[in-house]
């Protein structure tokens, strides 16, 4: 089962929730993988302190015209949906930052003079934190292509095991890529106008993708939770967990520690959340 922890708004507690779910599932003896696909700011490793066993530089393929002989026919340009290739009289100008690596231009090139060259986009790490299998991706600074790296991290999850995916915030391509293949989604929010606003967007994304989503309300006693509760009730979105703000949690997070190790009530709260996530769903989906 793949459980994706997403949020809409950043800083609501995705990593807090996902690292704890994965850690406690491993403590129960389950075969579980924590996969951090918040590839622009992957920081789950700070809490789980994994032993990294393998590092892999991930590449995508970009078109190139290595030996010339271009006839300037423009077929590649007509094929490209992203305007990443400009035909000139006897060559092409390639805009790599616009390329989505489909390889189409190379395949349609009539004189077959375009070819693909690998381009590094980031690093995938695999390791272990105790019984927990650890995966994360880190996109290179300045690299606009994060989705291929996210897909590569997700590809390394073993089928049939439990996976907890730490998604990037927002509702863009990166979040959409992180949600792909999810069996269930937890949206972490907070009772602030910002939390609610971005939760609406994230929920819309989940519904568009046909994914069942539940909500976790972090710091539930800060701000006014009435608009949030009213929204969730009206939209019939289940609240899987809600917990109060506790300075002890903030202290643990600031130290890069798993808060559940030092705050017993929080560990219990996440145990209950894990039960809820592993239980069969109301709508009959497994």
């Amino acid at each position: 089962m793949r459980l994706v922890v997403a949020s809409g708004k950043g800083g609501t507690g995705k990593t807090l929730v996902s690292t704890h779910l994965a850690w406690l599932a491993a403590e129960r003896g389950l075969d579980v993988t924590y996969a951090d696909v918040d590839v622009e700011t992957p920081n789950g490793h700070l809490f789980l302190a994994p032993v990294v066993e393998r590092e892999h530089r991930h590449t995508v393929l970009l078109p190139s015209l290595p030996f010339g002989h271009c006839t300037g026919c423009g077929v590649c340009h007509d094929f490209c949906q992203y305007n990443a290739i400009l035909p000139l009289p006897d060559s092409v100008l390639i805009f790599p930052e616009l390329c989505h690596n489909c390889g189409g231009c190379v395949r349609v090139c009539p004189p077959a003079v375009l070819s693909e060259v690998p381009h590094e986009v980031g690093t995938v790490r695999e390791g272990r934190a105790g019984n927990l299998r650890f995966l994360d991706g880190r996109v290179d600074v300045g690299e606009p292509r994060a989705t291929p790296l996210i897909q590569e991290v997700l590809r390394r999850i073993d089928a049939g095991t439990l996976a907890v995916v730490d998604a990037p915030p927002g509702t863009s391509c990166n979040t959409t890529a992180a949600l792909s293949g999810a069996d269930r989604v937890l949206l972490v929010t907070e009772p602030t106008p910002f939390g609610l606003h971005d939760l609406r967007l994230a929920l819309q994304l989940c519904r568009t993708a046909g994914l069942p989503a539940g909500v976790v309300i972090n710091r539930a006693d800060l701000g006014d939770d009435r608009p949030l509760r009213a929204f969730l009730e009206a939209e019939r979105v289940p609240v899987r967990a809600a917990w109060r703000y506790d300075p002890e949690l903030a202290v643990a997070v600031a130290r890069g520690e798993l808060a559940g190790r030092r705050v017993p009530w929080f560990r219990d709260a996440v145990e209950h959340l894990l039960d809820a996530c592993l239980a069969p769903q109301e709508d009959g989906r497994s």
Binding site: A84, L86, L88
Partner: peptide, 16 residues
């Protein structure tokens, strides 16, 4: 209406 690269598309059209 191009998702991206509208300037390159326009340049291609004009050069054509």
């Amino acid at each position: 209406q191009a998702e991206q690269g509208a300037g390159i598309g326009a340049a291609a059209l004009l050069l054509q």
